[in-house]
Design a protein around this nucleic acid. Structure first.
Lengths: 351, 351
DNA sequence: CTGAAAGCGCTTACAG
DNA sequence: CTGAAAGCGCTTACAG
C-alpha cells in the first residue's frame, strides 16, 4: 500500500507547479490545453483525488449538509421520511455535498444533545425532517446557520419551510368522496399534535363546509383524533370507537395511510365490506397502500420531492445569505384505487 | 455576526500560546490546572469549537464513516435497515464519528456510480447495509479501506461481516411449531436471491430433518420461493399457490414478516382462521408484527444491534490494520405471540 | 509545564 | 499561461 498521493506528487510527476495542478483541478483559471492534458493524464493514471479536508480548510466551507430526523421517524412504521432522506441525498450528491445524518430523541435537551456538527461548524446547512422537539429549532435558529424544516413548523419561530399541501390534499379526498355519493364522512386521525395532521383535519372540514355539510364537519362524534404517535392500531381503535358510538357514517378519511390500514383491518373484522359498506381513504401513499385488499385510495405525497426541494432551498439560502426566509409548498395528488369505489372494486370498471 | 473564532483567538484571549490551547483541547500533554482552568473558561465563554477540517488535515483521518445502502432497502416496505442505520449512527456518535449516508441503485456501475467519498478518501471506513450490487463490493475491496458488510455477503470475496443467525432463527421457529403439534409445515419466502433468506430456508429444512420429518423438508410442493423483491403480495401469492395445490399443511414459516403479513391477509380472505386452522410465523420482528390481528409470532432480529456491531467492528479494523477479517454473528430470539397458538389466541392463556 | 516553529494538502491572489 | 509564496486552523515534536 503506497502512501496517499498529494497535489505535490502530481505536480512533480507532470513537471509543473502545484498551482497549475490546482488550476486544472478547479477549472478556475487558464491553463494551456497542452499542459492541462498532461496534468489530467497524470491525475487519471494515479487516480488522484484532492483531499476534501484540505479544500475545506482553505475554502471555509465544509461540503457537508446536516440531516436531522427524530429516531421515531427514522424507524417508525411508515416509510415516509426515509424517502425524504433518499431524495435529499440524491440532490445533495448532484452538488457534491455529503449528507451527515443524525437523529434526535424526544428527550432532546440542548446543548448536550445537540448534534455535534452544529457545535463544530462541520456543516454548511441543515435539513430537519419531520417533527422534532421544539427545543431543537430554538437552539438552531440563533446559530446563524441556514436550515430548512420539512413537514414541520415551530409554533412561534419562523423558518425556511418545505411543506405538504395538506389542506388541499384533504379537500381533494373529501371532494372525491362527495362526487361518489358519500355524505356522512368521518375523520380518523393519528397524532393531532402534528401540524400536518391538524391541517388535514381542517381541510376535511372546509371541504365539507363548502359542500354545505357543515353539520358533518362540526359533528365531533364523527371525529377521532388522539394525541398519540400514529400507528395502525389507532386506526382500528378509531373505527371501533365510531362504530360503538352508533353514529351513521359511510366513509372515513384517515389522517394517513398507516391509520387507514388499521381502519381496513378493523372494518374487515367487524364484517363490513370496503368499499361496499364503507369507503376508506388514506393520506401519504406509502407503498403498502398498493398491497392491501382492497387497494387503498389515498392522497399521494411526493416524498422524494420533499427531500429534493429541501436541499435546493438550502442551496438558495447558501448562495443568497440574508435573503430572508423561503417557504415552499409541495402539491399532492389523489390516487383513486379500490377502497372508495364500489363499482371499481366489484367489476373492475371505473366509475 | 462575528467572525468564527479560532484557536489563535482563544490563545490571545487566555494569554497563552496556541499550543497550550491545543493541549487542553486534546487532553494529551500536561497543562497546569490553573492554566487549564483559564483556557477552559475562555473556550466556554466564547463557545469555541475546533474546526474539524483543520484537525482532519493534520491527523490524516477524516472522522467520517461511509454508510452505503441500496435505494430499494432505504425506502422499501420493511423498516429494517433504517433501524440498522439508527444503531450505527448512535454508536458512531459515541466515538465522535459522522455517518456519511449514500445510496446505490441496482444499476450500479463502477467507477462512475461509486460513492464520491470512496474516491476522495473522505471516510476512514465504510459500512454496507443489506444486499448491494456485487460490483460495489468488488470495487471497494481492493481500495485498501476497511469496510464491513451487514446482512449480506459477496459470493466470492471474503469481507468483514456482521450477520444474523438466520439458520438458527429458522430452526427455533420450526421447533416451536413442532412443540405445538404442527407437523405439515410449509415455507413461504421472499427473494431467494438473498443469502439470508436462503439460510432461513435451510434452517427450516434442517430442523425438520432433525425431527425426522425429512419428507416435509424435501417436499417442494410445500415451498414457495421466488426470485423477486420481498413484498406482502408475495406472501399472499405464496399462500394462494400452496392452497391451490391442494397440499396438506397446518403451519407456514415465512422468510420475513412482510411476507407473513401477506399470508395473514390471504388466509383471512380465504376464510381460514389463524392460528385455528393454520399457524403463521414470521422473521425479523418489524413493528407491524405487533399491530396485526392476530399478533404475529416471529423470530426477532436485533436490528439496532446489527448497526452497533458493524460500527464496533469497523473501529476494530481501524485500530488494528492488517488484522485480518472479522466475522460477527448476531443471535435471534423467538417472540411467541398469537399467530401460532390456538389457546393463546382464544382464551388469552399461554400454552 | 509552556512556547516557537514546522507542516498537514490544498487554494488564491500576486508576479512575471 | 505558469510559478513562488502566503495562508486556511489546527497538532505535534522539539526546545526550554
Amino acid at each position: 500500500m503506497m502512501a496517499k498521493m498529494t497535489i505535490k506528487d502530481m505536480a512533480r510527476l507532470a513537471g509543473v507547479s502545484v498551482s497549475t495542478v490546482s488550476l486544472v483541478l478547479s477549472n478556475h483559471g487558464y491553463v494551456s490545453a497542452k499542459t492541462r492534458r498532461r496534468v489530467e493524464r497524470i491525475i487519471a493514471k494515479h487516480n488522484y483525488h484532492p483531499r476534501q479536508s484540505a479544500r475545506n480548510l482553505v475554502s471555509g466551507r465544509t461540503g457537508n449538509m446536516g440531516f436531522i430526523i427524530s429516531d421515531i421517524h427514522l424507524s417508525g412504521t411508515e416509510f415516509f421520511y426515509s424517502r425524504v432522506l433518499l431524495g435529499a441525498e440524491l440532490e445533495a450528491r448532484k452538488k457534491d455535498y455529503y449528507l451527515l445524518v443524525t437523529t434526535v430523541g424526544d428527550t432532546f435537551q440542548p446543548p448536550q444533545d445537540a448534534p455535534r456538527f452544529l457545535k463544530g461548524g462541520d456543516v454548511d446547512g441543515v435539513i430537519i425532517a419531520g417533527s422534532v422537539p421544539e427545543e431543537l429549532v430554538s437552539y438552531i435558529h440563533p446559530l446563524n446557520i441556514p436550515y430548512v424544516l420539512v413537514d414541520y413548523k415551530h409554533p412561534s419561530i419562523d423558518s425556511n419551510l418545505v411543506q405538504i399541501e395538506n389542506h388541499d390534499g384533504a379537500c381533494q379526498a373529501v371532494e372525491h368522496l362527495l362526487r361518489h355519493g358519500y355524505r356522512r364522512i368521518a375523520f380518523v386521525g393519528g397524532s393531532c399534535r402534528h401540524a400536518s395532521i391538524r391541517e388535514r383535519f381542517r381541510g376535511y372540514q372546509s371541504a365539507l363546509h363548502q359542500a354545505g355539510l357543515s353539520e358533518v364537519a362540526q359533528d365531533d362524534s364523527l371525529h377521532f383524533l388522539v394525541p398519540e404517535e400514529t400507528t395502525a392500531l389507532i386506526g382500528a381503535r378509531g373505527i371501533n370507537t365510531l362504530l360503538d358510538r352508533a353514529v351513521q357514517f359511510d366513509a372515513v378519511v384517515c389522517a394517513n395511510d398507516t391509520t387507514a390500514l388499521g381502519c381496513l383491518n378493523a372494518l374487515q373484522e367487524r364484517g363490513l365490506d370496503v368499499p361496499g359498506d364503507m369507503a376508506v381513504i388514506g393520506f401519504d401513499d406509502i407503498r403498502y397502500a398498493t398491497e392491501t385488499k382492497p387497494l387503498l385510495t389515498t392522497v399521494h405525497v411526493p416524498k422524494l420531492e420533499l427531500g429534493v426541494q429541501a436541499v435546493r432551498l438550502l442551496f438558495e439560502c447558501l448562495e443568497n445569505p440574508g435573503g430572508g426566509l423561503y417557504h415552499r409548498s409541495i402539491g399532492t395528488e389523489l390516487m383513486v384505487r379500490e377502497s372508495t369505489s364500489r363499482v371499481l372494486a366489484e367489476t373492475g370498471a371505473a366509475v
